[in-house]
Design a protein around this nucleic acid. Structure first.
Lengths: 247, 247
DNA sequence: GGCACGTTAACTGTTGACAATCTACCTGTC
DNA sequence: GACAGGTAGATTGTCAACAGTTAACGTGCC
C-alpha cells in the first residue's frame, strides 16, 4: 500500500506498542516510561519518544508534559465524540464514493462486507471488529479523500481500543452484529443513491449508539467509567475530550 | 484558555514557525533544515524535531523520511479535501451546539460573528480570515466535542495557509466576504433549528466552493497549481492527499 | 493523629556527538 | 555530447549523557 521503504525505528516501536494496546496487553492508564521501553526494545530514547508521540497523535495514548505518556483510558463520552465525527465524515464519504468509485472499487467494498459478516459469524470478536473496520475503511478509501481516510484510521483505532477494553459493558454489541445496517450502506452505494447511503450511515450509527447506551448502568453512567486504576502510583489523567489529537 | 504552564521549547519553536508559515515569511515548499533552525533559535535539534513533527501533524508541513521537512504547498485539491471534512464536521457541530449551548455561548458566537463582519469591512485580509475562523471556531467549541474542536483547528490552519499563499487566485473570495451565509448559520443556531443550521452550513460551503472554482483558469486548472519552486535544489514533494495528518 | 515542609529518587526535557543515508556534483566512457 | 558510475558533502536518524522538574516519601511540628 504505502512505500515499502525500510521502517524507521520509531515506526516499528509504534506498531508494536499499538498492537500491545489494542490487544489489551497494555492496560488503559498504564504509564509508558521512556527509559523502560528503550531497554525493552533495545533502542535509545529518541525513537521511543517519537513512537509515543505517534501514539498520542492516534489517540491511543495521552501525553502530559513533564509527567509522561499514558495508555488512553477512553470513556463512553470519548466514544460518543468519536462516533459523532465518524458519522459526519462517513456520511460524506459515501457520497464521494458514489461520485467517484468505479465498479472494481464497489466489488472490493462488498468483499470487505462479506469478510466482516463471516468474521461476526465466528467467535473471534477482535477479528470481527477488525473486519468491521475494514468495511468502513473500504468506502472511506474509495472516497478519494486522503485526509478523510487518515482521519478515519485515527478514529477507528480509538473505536477498537474502547471496544476491546470495555468488552464487558458493550458485550451486547457483539451479540447483535450490525450486518443489516452494513449491507444497507453497501447496497445504497452500489445503487448510486447518495441520499439512501447517507441515511444508511446515519442509521448505522443510530443503531450502534442505541446498543451502546442500552448497556449503561441503570443510573445512566457507563459501567466502565472509572479510570480502572491498575496501580495507585500510576495515576492516569482524565483523558476526556481535550488533549486527544483526534485531528 | 489552556494551562499557563511555561511552554516547552519545541512549543515555542512550533508557534514561531507556524506564524512564519501562515504569514508567508516561509514560502510553500521551503525546506526546513533542522540544524539551520537549531542555530537560528539557539536550541538543540531535539526540540526542533518535535516542532517540525507538530507542524506536520497540523498539516502545515510535510515530513519525508530521510529527506527532510518541507513547508506544505497545498493545492486546490487539498483545499477541496479540507472543505469536505470541514463541512461534514461543522454540520454536526451546529446540531450539537443547538442541543447543548446555553444563551451565554450563543451570545459569544454572535460576538465572533460581528467581529468577523467588521474585519471583512476593513482592509486587512489576514485579520479578516482569522476572524472568520474565530466565528466557525465558536460553534465548534460550543458543540462540546473536544475532538471535533481539535480537528477544526487542524483544518482551519490548512485553510488559512492556502488562503494566504494563494491570495491572488482566490482574491474573488475576499471581495465578496461570506457575511450573509455566516449570519444565516448563526441565526439558525439561535433559533434552535437544527435542519436550518445544517442547511446553512452546507450553503456556506457551497458558496465558498463556487467562489473558489470561479477563480480557476479557463482550462480548469488552478492558477496556483504548480509547486511554486522557489529554488531548484529545494524540491518539495507533492503534498496532495496522503501523508497529511488531517486526523 | 494530621498537616506542612524538606529531602530524595525517578523521569522527562534538552543537549551534543556519531553513524547511516541521500543528494548533488564530478569524472570517465560510449 | 549524453549517460552511467563514483565520490564528496550535507542532512537526517540514532545514541548516550546532563540538567531541571515533578512526584513520592519521610520527618518534624502543631
Amino acid at each position: 500500500m504505502t512505500t515499502l521503504a525500510h521502517k524507521q525505528l520509531w515506526e516499528a516501536v509504534s506498531d508494536r506498542l499499538r498492537d500491545d494496546i489494542l490487544d489489551g496487553r497494555l492496560a488503559a492508564g498504564t504509564r509508558l516510561v521512556e527509559t523502560e521501553l528503550a531497554d525493552r526494545f533495545g533502542v535509545s530514547r529518541g525513537p521511543i519518544r517519537d513512537a509515543l508521540r505517534e501514539l498520542s497523535r492516534t489517540g491511543l495514548a495521552v501525553d502530559v508534559p513533564r509527567r509522561g505518556t499514558f495508555v488512553s483510558s477512553l470513556t463512553e463520552r470519548d466514544l460518543d465524540e468519536v462516533y459523532v465525527i465518524r458519522r459526519a465524515i462517513e456520511e460524506s464519504a459515501v457520497r464521494l464514493t458514489i461520485e467517484r468509485a468505479d465498479d472494481a472499487g464497489i466489488t472490493e467494498m462488498f468483499r470487505a462486507l462479506d469478510a466482516a459478516e463471516a468474521a461476526y459469524a465466528g467467535d473471534d470478536l477482535a477479528a470481527a471488529w477488525d473486519a468491521d473496520m475494514a468495511f468502513h475503511r473500504s468506502y472511506c478509501r474509495l472516497s478519494g479523500n486522503g485526509r478523510l481516510l487518515a482521519l478515519f484510521e485515527n478514529l477507528a483505532s480509538q473505536t477498537v481500543l474502547l471496544m476491546r477494553t470495555t468488552l464487558d459493558s458493550h458485550a451486547s454489541l457483539a451479540w447483535t452484529p450490525p450486518v443489516e445496517v452494513h449491507r444497507r450502506i453497501a447496497n445504497a452505494i452500489a445503487a448510486r443513491d447518495p441520499d439512501a447511503a447517507t441515511l444508511a450511515v446515519g442509521a448505522h450509527y443510530q443503531y450502534t449508539q442505541d446498543r451502546l447506551h442500552a448497556s449503561d448502568t441503570p443510573d445512566g453512567r457507563a459501567t466502565s467509567g472509572a479510570p480502572a486504576a491498575s496501580d495507585a502510583s500510576d495515576a492516569p489523567p482524565a483523558s476526556s475530550g481535550e488533549g486527544i489529537s483526534a485531528g
